[in-house]
Design a protein around this nucleic acid. Structure first.
Lengths: 205, 205
DNA sequence: CCTGATCCTGACCGTTTGGTCAACAACCGA
DNA sequence: TCGGTTGTTGACCAAACGGTCAGGATCAGG
């Protein structure tokens, strides 16, 4: 998890690697790993295909770099749950933060969704390792609050799953939601109110 | 939506088409459309590649057939919500039915998840058409119950979204859930209790 | 048992794809 | 300005892919 000692990158390396990762994020999140082609990534990045492969050895390399780079950011809100805070505020804050991530970073959400759907070939060790640790910590915090009677008792891990499911759904299934709601709806605005209400009801001791 | 007048199929056609669709469901649900190959489907079905393409003109054809065939089954539980029933029972019944579908038909769930993630290229007209109609009907039923004070008022469409998200999550993100929970957990059993509790709390007027 | 329709497959084809490479261009410190 | 490092690309390759086809095997009705 700790950043390796990065080799110093030249200005050009920095810029082009960023362009590639940015383009690849768009392409991978639209088509999945197999559906994306190096050519598409190159076009999205504004570079030639060989040039893309000059900076990253392979398509797989780009994908793996994206996943591991973005995982920390993706999990950050859960780590910020504060055991010293007010239980309801902390959980509602987490829900809000997670929904905000779905709103602002739908590509990242879809990237992870594809990876998990596929069986998480690039994330297996992380899933059972640091992710599990982070969830365990958060679950312990929640369980503590429940034991103190400050939160309605329930399975804390499934509470976390529910937050993931409900917030990421709005990014990952965006097409479906827009089709069902029709025009003139801001699904995320509505979701924010709906989820705030849901978790308030669910959690108030 | 109504079944076309099917040409009569021979015994062999019936059997082999079923074998192909069954194998394709497995392969597509594991790898997505682009990730799946006709060869894999053929192997999963126990047939040769040309033979698969003898029964279905193209890979696309198999995929489209699967999606449209399974969509009715997938949406069936929502259609069964009975406006004359007891509101809480009806919703909890729907939740239970939907979770049971995730448990018993995870491949179908993933098939649809891939399709929606991809932007639903094969389902766009259905999404904005019959699906929307079905959701509108169910939403109207829910809204009616809320207006009568028999259900806590909330946005009925987002209530439906929440049920989709929470139940399908256990099929689609199964790998992640198993990694986080570790061995010795039946995620679906736990989810059944958790969701029953969640929706009971949320909906009791 | 015959015969036409159905079923099946090895060999093949054109395209797409990830990746390589030699050669050239741009950069940059000395 | 020079020289080596870094950056860039057109042309190319082998493998994988979706799909075709001619011809042979099998089936089912008469």
């Amino acid at each position: 998890m700790a950043d390796q000692a990065q080799p110093i990158l030249t200005r050009i390396q920095q810029k082009n690697r960023d362009l590639i990762l940015e383009g690849a994020l768009t392409v991978f999140s639209e088509s999945g790993f197999r559906g994306a082609t190096v050519d598409q990534i190159a076009r999205a990045a504004g570079l030639s295909k060989p040039n893309v492969l000059y900076y990253f050895g392979s398509k797989d390399d780009i994908h793996k770099t994206l996943l591991t780079t973005l995982l920390d950011m993706w999990l950050a809100p859960m780590v910020r749950i504060d055991p010293a805070g007010e239980p309801l505020d902390e959980v509602l804050g987490y829900v809000r933060a997670k929904l905000e991530m779905s709103r602002r970073f739908p590509r990242e959400s879809r990237l992870f969704a594809y990876e998990i759907l596929q069986g998480a070939p690039h994330l297996t060790e992380i899933l059972g390792g640091s992710l599990r640790g982070i969830v365990d910590t958060a679950a312990a915090t929640l369980q503590g609050w429940m034991d103190q009677g400050r939160l309605t008792p329930m399975d804390p891990r499934h509470l976390i799953f529910s937050i993931w499911a409900l917030t990421q759904h709005y990014a990952d299934f965006d097409v479906q939601i827009r089709a069902v709601l029709g025009p003139g709806h801001d699904a995320f605005d509505e979701a924010e109110r709906f989820l705030e209400n849901l978790y308030r009801k669910l959690l108030e001791a």
